Computed example of a mutant assay.
Amino acid sequence: MSSLACCFVWNVRGLNGRARRNVVREFPVKKGQLLNHVRLRLPPGDECVRRGILLGWNNDCWTTSDVHKGRYTISAKLSAPSASTDQWWITVVYGPQLDHEKVEFLDELLHFRDSHPGPWFLCGDFNMIYRAQDKNNGRLDRRCMRRFRAFLNRVNLEELNLVGRRFTWSNERERPTLELLDRMFASMDWFVAFPNHMLKPLSSDCSDLRCYLLLQLKVNTDLKRRFRFESFWTKLPGFDDVVAAAWEPSVTNADPFRVLDHKLRNVAKALRRWSNTKIGSVRLQLAMAREVIQRFDEEQESRTLLP
């Protein structure tokens, strides 16, 4: 059966704020059940702020092996459990800001590619551009642009088309500087393996500087839809009554384990029905709010927005 798998890229800063920490913690559970991950801590940046990269994956959709940690990158080999022969490399980056470190950054990527052939997917915050159209003004570092473009040509990577947005970063000034810093590239054999894909932006409702990037892939899987318990349910009126009513019916002629299994299944079904009828409108309002924010994000690329 064909289903949709997602690759989510977000350069988040300001994790001292509770709201952003909650989004980072809860988003994978809501969008894909993050079951495993690997981290890379990077040296502090110019503002002496700790930085890092988190690469996460859903064990139901992907198996991961051969994890490599560089100074600015994390790489791993991915394959679908139902098709172990279709393996590909993913590299997530956090590009540095200093010129000499950018040279080291590209050399690190080039060295990885030379020693790891096969389909390759490269994504993250590169902190550099390779085209003048990737910035909304003429203040360009053309030497850095040529260096980045030469790297892409040497490793034969093509960029995935971002639908609906020209830029992913803003300095949030009165006359903002906008740049396309967060992006995704892939080798031609990766495009052959995943011809049905779409890269689109999400609203910047929890990020003051960047938009989210969401890549949707069609993969073959035989998974069934799982029940997901939402932690905020417990704070809503009627939750306790639904659980109590679903738990109450007795089960006869069964051992304790089967009784427990039956009751838990009843509770899951009852909560799913209750959520669809009572909470669906809340999720719709949240989706509408994000749509409005995304429209503002798009308008900011063409004109100055007034408060």
Rank of each mutant, 00 (worst) to 15 (best):
A246K: 08
D114C: 13
Q216G: 00
F227Y: 11
V93F: 06
D134A: 06
F112S: 02
R71G: 12
A193P: 00
D125Y: 01
W120T: 07
G52T: 10
F148R: 03
I53S: 04
T85Y: 13
T177H: 05
G238T: 02
W247S: 00
R226Q: 11
V67R: 06
P119C: 03
T63V: 12
L260Q: 04
K269T: 05
S204K: 02
V67M: 05
R147C: 04
D255T: 08
R25T: 13
T73A: 04
G118S: 12
T252H: 13
N127W: 01
G238I: 01
S250E: 15
F257W: 11
A244D: 11
C7L: 14
K235N: 08
P96W: 05
D86I: 13
L199V: 12
I53E: 02
V12I: 10
T64G: 15
W233R: 05
R225P: 03
R13N: 10
F257S: 14
A289R: 15
L34N: 02
V292G: 00
K278W: 00
R147N: 07
A254D: 09
E47D: 06
V9N: 08
D222N: 15
L15P: 00
S231R: 11
H37V: 10
M288S: 03
P195C: 04
A76D: 06
T63F: 06
W57F: 04
E174M: 11
R265V: 07
S281R: 07
F8G: 05
V67D: 02
L199M: 06
G138H: 15
T177D: 09
F185D: 00
K77E: 14
I293D: 14
D241L: 12
T63I: 13
T177G: 05
G280H: 04
R131C: 10
M198N: 09
D205A: 14
P201T: 02
R146K: 11
L140D: 02
L110S: 14
L264A: 05
G70F: 09
W169T: 03
S2Y: 12
V163N: 11
R283N: 11
